[in-house]
Amino acid sequence: MEKNYYLELIQSTFSTLLLDAIQYFPENSKKVHYESSGLLFGVESGEQMECDYVFPVGSVEKRTSSSILTNPKVDQALKSSRQLFSTSTFIGTYHSHPYEEYFPDWCCPSNADVLYSLNNKFPYEVIIAMTRNSMEDKPLTIEFYEGEGYEYIHNSKREGNSAPDLKKLGYKTAYLIGEFQKYKFEIRAFQFTGKSLIDIDLESSEAELLSLLQQEEIHLNEIDQKDISRLRKMEYNLRTKQANEKSESNLQYHLSKLKVNS
Rank of each mutant, 00 (worst) to 15 (best):
K3L: 03
N4W: 11
Y5D: 10
E8V: 07
E8L: 06
L9Y: 01
T13H: 08
F14T: 00
S15M: 05
T16W: 07
L17N: 05
L19H: 15
D20C: 07
A21D: 06
I22W: 07
Q23A: 14
Q23N: 14
Q23Y: 15
F25H: 04
E27V: 10
K30V: 05
K30R: 10
E35S: 15
S36K: 01
S36W: 00
G38D: 03
F41V: 04
F41L: 08
G42T: 14
E44P: 00
E44Q: 05
S45W: 02
E47A: 10
Q48A: 13
E50H: 12
D52N: 10
D52K: 05
S59N: 13
E61W: 01
K62N: 14
R63S: 13
I68F: 02
N71L: 11
P72L: 01
P72V: 07
D75S: 11
K79C: 00
Q83E: 03
L84Q: 09
F85D: 00
S96A: 14
H97L: 12
P98M: 04
Y99K: 03
D105K: 13
P109W: 05
S110W: 04
S110A: 06
N111Y: 06
D113E: 11
D113Q: 10
Y116P: 04
L118Y: 01
N119M: 13
N120K: 15
F122R: 11
Y124V: 03
M130P: 02
T131L: 06
N133R: 08
S134D: 09
E136N: 10
K138P: 08
L140G: 13
Y145I: 08
E146Q: 12
Y150C: 06
Y152C: 05
K157P: 01
S162V: 01
A163C: 01
D165N: 15
L166A: 08
L166G: 03
K167N: 01
K167W: 08
K168Y: 00
G170E: 01
G170C: 02
Y171T: 06
K172R: 12
T173A: 12
L176F: 15
G178R: 10
G178M: 14
G178A: 13
F180L: 09
Q181V: 07
K182M: 07
K182W: 03
K184P: 02
K184D: 02
F185Y: 12
R188K: 14
Q191Y: 01
F192V: 10
G194H: 00
S196I: 04
L197G: 04
D199A: 06
I200M: 02
E203S: 13
E208G: 12
L210G: 09
L210M: 11
S211C: 02
L212T: 15
Q214S: 15
Q214A: 14
E217N: 14
E217W: 02
H219K: 15
N221A: 03
E222F: 05
I223S: 09
D224S: 15
D227V: 10
D227T: 11
I228L: 13
R230C: 08
L238K: 04
N250C: 08
K257R: 15
L258T: 04
L258A: 10
L258I: 06
K259E: 09
V260D: 11
N261Q: 13
S262K: 05
